[in-house]
């Protein structure tokens, strides 16, 4: 019997891997089961220390150059087989683009249910996942009866909170023989140093109120001052000012940062779907009746062309 956490990596372990480990530790403790982990990637060497304090008994490490990038053909059978070998009762992964594909595929192979993109999971005699439905308009508790119960956690929704404790034992595993059907031809990664939208602790988003692409630097400047990732409303994406990858909302990315700053965004319901689980929402809008003020924590009624640069300057000042 075991709780199993899937440690997602992109060269380095991803922050969401530690968030998943944190949630898994609490579940394992409540269920009275040991916690184990699977690492699949090029190499875990030198990163073991990061895994201390999560109560992980053993990490099953599948290390190989050909495993550095995700592939269904290679990753899915590994996780399926480890889950069977350990008699896993719970499997926790991350609801990233690749994490969701992995979890869905493993769930199919094991013939079990999976709560994807959950914002929390706890053990109450069985696994209960909290999951937004209908563009976040309702929040559901999903009780998973099939075993192993599987959950993928939305990045940033659980805090990675290591306790005192040793680094886990690492058991290196040989890469199993697999026939790779799909071939990775090319990878394009984000420019180094840029904070990724769905994992950022702070997100600064701009909407139609920014007026045009020639003013977008106002949003980027504020984001830079706050150490934030840049997001956008669909109005801005559809107008072609920024790439679709920046869109936050029902048909864009779902973000859950500590601080979400909405600048010149009216707060349409489809936009809310992508940001309403943010911990603190700050709104800057010149219309005091804008919908966004109904769902924000702190609002400034004013012209973003004035407020955003002033805010950037103030943040730089207190951070200096």
């Amino acid at each position: 019997m075991s709780v199993l956490v899937l440690l997602e990596q992109r060269g380095e372990l991803k922050p969401c891997a530690l968030e998943a480990a944190s949630a898994a530790r609490d579940i394992a403790a409540a269920a009275g089961m040991p916690l184990n982990a699977v690492y699949i990637g090029q190499s875990l060497e030198g990163q073991e220390g990061k895994l201390a304090g999560y109560g992980i008994a053993k990490v099953y490490a599948y290390e190989h150059a050909s495993l550095s990038h995700y592939s269904n053909d290679a990753y899915v059978p590994i996780v399926r087989d480890v889950a069977r070998e350990l008699d896993a009762k719970v499997i926790i992964g991350s609801a990233t683009a690749l994490g969701k594909e992995l979890c869905a595929s493993v769930a199919a192979r094991l013939g079990v249910e999976l709560a994807q993109d959950a914002i929390g999971a706890a053990w109450a005699g069985g696994l209960v996942a909290k999951k937004p439905l209908y563009a976040g308009k309702v929040l559901a508790d999903v009780t998973i009866q099939s075993v192993p119960a599987m959950v993928s956690l939305r990045p940033n929704s659980v805090q990675a909170a290591p306790q005192d404790g040793p680094a886990p034992e690492i058991e290196k595993r040989a890469m199993p023989e697999v026939s790779l059907r799909s071939v990775l031809k090319e990878t394009a990664e984000a420019t180094a140093g840029k904070v990724e939208l769905t994992e950022a602790k702070i997100v600064v988003s701009g909407g139609r109120g920014v007026g045009g692409p020639e003013n977008w630097h106002i949003i980027e400047n504020l984001a830079e001052a706050m150490g934030a990732a840049v997001g956008a409303s669909r109005a801005v994406v559809d107008a072609g000012w920024v790439h679709h990858a920046l869109q936050v909302g029902q048909t864009g990315k779902v973000v859950s940062p500590d601080i979400y700053v909405a600048c010149g965004i009216s707060g349409a319901i489809q936009h809310q779907a992508g940001m309403r689980t943010s911990k603190i929402i700050v709104a800057i809008n010149k219309d005091p009746n804008a919908n966004i003020f109904k769902l924000c924590d702190y609002g400034i009624v004013g012209d973003l062309f004035e407020v955003c640069p002033a805010l950037a300057e103030e943040v730089r000042k207190v951070r200096a």
Binding site: H69, Y70, T96, A97, L98, R181, S182, V183, L184, K185, E186, T187, A188, E189, A190, K194, E196, L197, T198, E199, A245
Partner: peptide, 13 residues
């Protein structure tokens, strides 16, 4: 295939 902050180009039979 879109991933966070990038993409993979994949060939599938």
């Amino acid at each position: 295939r879109e991933i966070e902050g990038g993409k993979y180009r994949i060939e599938l039979p």
